[in-house]
Design a protein around this nucleic acid. Structure first.
Lengths: 191, 191
DNA sequence: TATTGTTATACTCTATAACTATA
DNA sequence: TATAGTTATAGAGTATAACAATA
């Protein structure tokens, strides 16, 4: 694979500060710190998501499928109804059905009818799903940790704090917007 | 739409620190600050990406299409060869063709054969593409700025600095890995 | 009537391999 | 031989609407 060593990983030359500002300054609403933040957030996410997807690919799991298995494993046998899975993964109900179908066919999760509300199906992780997770997680945690090892624990904690504050800001703005307009902005679970 | 007001935007209850640590502490490679950082990065990205996708949806543009138009607009008429677009967007060559096809059909970009190397096609934004961008960007910048308005400029800059450091850490680790193994990890442009 | 979940559809994004034309 | 771009295909992800079962 001669390509491997020639792939340029760093795309940041396409997003130089000077070029962006030169192009965008004609818009009065343009704000460099905001734009810079978004670019860095998106690019950091892209790098990590692509890398994690490659790890999970070895196990034929998508990122959503992996997240679902982990959430179910953490629930300690109680499982989750399908509509709550949609909330947790920011995915619509219709698509949760497909995701769960796929994992159920492989025997990694199972559906159980809720005893009190017979409309509801609880999804639980199976023994086999737990075994798969246990074969993935040691290597997964190690590889991910190596990936971010140039940040100290303190920097990681600070980054987390700022990202949390960013999430709060977004959530508050969206709530304000959906209170204001009846045709307000919606996120997730649009079905 | 009675659903609008009932959608729960905040999914963080599914990712509580105690529950995660209780489940993951059996793995010696597990490291809470790293996991916390990843969760917060992914969720912040999800919120922003979903919101921006909704804005762009009004103009029938995907996030990639929007990014492509902006990169082309910033190049000030010079345009970009298709393989560089792949690098910039972290997308494989094959998929750049499709993306450019789609925008070319709508008259927003055009292909021009490179005069010196006749294998190369340069993609340029058209007048019509620039007009579309100019109709989107004022509102776009304003909405995005409102979304993150609970962070001060200083906090945004600090967040950017930390995200940059995170990007560097990832890029360095990936480079080390691909130097080590001939079948090394690759990102993007796998075609 | 409203909610949970399913089915069906269509569109986008992604990954891969085989192909062409140029260098 | 290597590179730029295209074509074709298959698998995910997402959005939407219509529907059945249950509340």
């Amino acid at each position: 694979m001669s390509q491997t060593s020639q792939v340029r990983l760093d795309k940041r030359k396409y997003y130089s500060r000077d070029q962006i500002i030169r192009h965008a300054q004609k818009y009065p609403t343009f704000h460099w710190p905001t734009t810079e933040l978004l670019l860095n957030l998106v690019y950091a996410y892209d790098l990590i998501a692509t890398y994690i997807a490659r790890i999970l690919n070895r196990y034929h799991l998508s990122l959503s499928a992996f997240n679902l298995l982990i959430i179910l494993a953490r629930s300690e046998g109680k499982g989750l109804p399908l509509h709550e899975i949609g909330e947790a993964l920011l995915v619509s109900r219709a698509n949760v059905t497909g995701l769960v179908d796929c994992l159920e066919r492989r025997g990694l999760v199972e559906r159980v009818v809720h005893t009190e509300d017979r409309r509801v199906r609880i999804v639980r992780i199976t023994k086999s799903g737990e075994e798969l997770l246990e074969s993935i997680l040691p290597g997964y945690h190690g590889e991910v940790r190596e990936l971010v090892n140039e940040l100290s624990d303190e920097e990681k904690a600070q980054l987390s704090r700022l990202l949390l504050k960013l999430q709060d800001s977004i959530l508050h703005t969206l709530e304000k917007k959906s209170r204001k307009r009846e045709d307000g902005f919606m996120i997730g679970n649009g079905g």
